Amino acid sequence: MTILVTGAAGFIGAYACRALAARGERVVGLDNYNRYYDPQIKRDRVAALCPDVAIAELDLTDRAGLEALFDREQPTRVLHLAAQAGVRYSLQNPQAYVDSNLTGFTNILELCRHRGVQHLVYASSSSVYGGSATPPFSEDQRVDKPLSFYAATKVANEAMAHTYAHLFRLRATGLRFFTVYGAWGRPDMAPVLFSRAVLEGRGIEVFNHGRMRRDFTHVSDIVAGVLGALDHPPADGGPDAPPHRVFNLGNHTPVELERFIAVIEQAAGRPADKTYRPMQPGDMVETMADTRAAKAAFGFEPATPIEAGLPEVVAWCREYFSAH
């Protein structure tokens, strides 16, 4: 079996490549190494986590390049993690989200359909819940009030995948990730941003005056869920039950933002210099995953509390950024 991982140099992607290769799969990767954050981090991440995985440098909008890759590698399954991420950046550059998350996702759907891919697993986001759902977020709640353009593109991805499952019987599984963190994490997200700032004695901005809760989920738990989903394609139940499912992958234990900062302070051995700010446009006050569906379908059961996972992030930031 050959598994194509898009976004292979990304945070979740590199860990997923490592886990798949470790269990003996033939893994091929794709990444465009864009400049949303420093591409050198992505290259260093690959060198540290999955140096033996071949990663094609290719953009999702390059239809001809994607066709050549699919024809050459003939993937059996596709793990589609490549996307333009970030809630706040989507307010500044929505076109990047159209290109990657809509046009790029359409290209992936078409190639999976026409090249006989057995199962497409793709990244969605807890952001889809927006203003219409109440914690704990469950997959049967409405997702028709996204609070950011990024979230809107992820809602669209789920609808697009459902349509391909209905029309073409493409087996597809969407995964709604809840605030993933760990060593080699994205430098634009709070775990790394705050850890670096505290270590370096710089101030941090705490939005909504600290009155926020997040379902922080360690990358090891997320990758276990990704592999579980990949191994359990949805059944084709006929015309009224297309082979498409969506699952929450979260820690189902939301953490107060002030508690999250306190754990970083303890691991860093110094206090944070906090400036309190109002709520940012597009943000959600609370995220909390109901993970019962993922547990029933493939045994998903996260086990890493922030008291164990965040010190690892602080230690990685101390080592990596002091050397760069």
Rank of each mutant, 00 (worst) to 15 (best):
residue 287 T to W: 06
residue 263 V to G: 02
residue 318 R to T: 10
residue 300 F to Y: 15
residue 263 V to W: 01
residue 303 A to F: 06
residue 286 E to W: 05
residue 238 G to T: 05
residue 280 Q to N: 13
residue 304 T to L: 02
residue 266 Q to C: 02
residue 278 P to M: 07
residue 309 G to N: 10
residue 311 P to L: 15
residue 239 P to S: 04
residue 289 A to D: 03
residue 226 V to A: 03
residue 274 K to S: 07
residue 322 S to N: 12
residue 246 V to L: 15
residue 273 D to R: 12
residue 284 M to H: 09
residue 236 D to H: 01
residue 284 M to K: 06
residue 242 P to D: 01
residue 293 A to C: 02
residue 237 G to C: 07
residue 241 A to F: 03
residue 266 Q to E: 15
residue 280 Q to W: 12
residue 263 V to S: 04
residue 237 G to L: 04
residue 293 A to S: 12
residue 273 D to P: 04
residue 246 V to R: 06
residue 266 Q to P: 01
residue 219 V to C: 00
residue 314 V to R: 03
residue 301 E to K: 09
residue 319 E to D: 15
residue 273 D to Q: 11
residue 257 L to G: 07
residue 263 V to N: 03
residue 264 I to Y: 03
residue 241 A to H: 03
residue 269 G to N: 08
residue 221 D to Y: 02
residue 316 W to N: 05
residue 249 L to P: 00
residue 316 W to F: 10
residue 247 F to Q: 08
residue 321 F to W: 15
residue 222 I to H: 00
residue 261 I to K: 04
residue 237 G to N: 03
residue 315 A to V: 08
residue 282 G to M: 09
residue 298 F to I: 09
residue 308 A to K: 09
residue 305 P to G: 06
residue 273 D to L: 14
residue 303 A to D: 13
residue 224 A to S: 15
residue 248 N to Q: 14
residue 287 T to S: 12
residue 221 D to M: 00
residue 221 D to N: 00
residue 314 V to C: 01
residue 223 V to Q: 04
residue 238 G to Y: 04
residue 227 L to H: 10
residue 260 F to V: 12
residue 290 D to H: 07
residue 283 D to G: 03
residue 299 G to Q: 09
residue 304 T to V: 11
residue 270 R to T: 15
residue 268 A to I: 12
residue 223 V to E: 04
residue 231 D to G: 14
residue 303 A to M: 12
residue 226 V to G: 09
residue 312 E to I: 05
residue 277 R to V: 13
residue 278 P to F: 15
residue 215 D to Q: 02
residue 250 G to S: 03
residue 314 V to S: 05
residue 229 A to G: 10
residue 219 V to N: 00
residue 215 D to K: 00
residue 308 A to W: 11
residue 220 S to W: 03
residue 273 D to Y: 08
residue 234 P to H: 08
residue 235 A to F: 07
residue 299 G to T: 08
residue 299 G to I: 10
residue 231 D to Q: 15
residue 264 I to E: 05
residue 253 T to L: 05
residue 280 Q to R: 15
residue 257 L to W: 10
residue 266 Q to N: 13
residue 289 A to R: 05
residue 244 H to I: 13
residue 242 P to S: 05
residue 240 D to Y: 02
residue 289 A to I: 09
residue 230 L to R: 09
residue 309 G to L: 13
residue 297 A to W: 10
residue 280 Q to S: 14
residue 277 R to H: 11
residue 253 T to D: 11
residue 308 A to H: 14
residue 251 N to K: 02
residue 239 P to W: 02
residue 232 H to C: 14
residue 267 A to Q: 10
residue 272 A to Q: 11
residue 307 E to L: 13
residue 229 A to P: 07
residue 261 I to P: 01
residue 317 C to H: 05
residue 300 F to S: 12
residue 228 G to W: 10
residue 259 R to A: 12
residue 300 F to I: 08
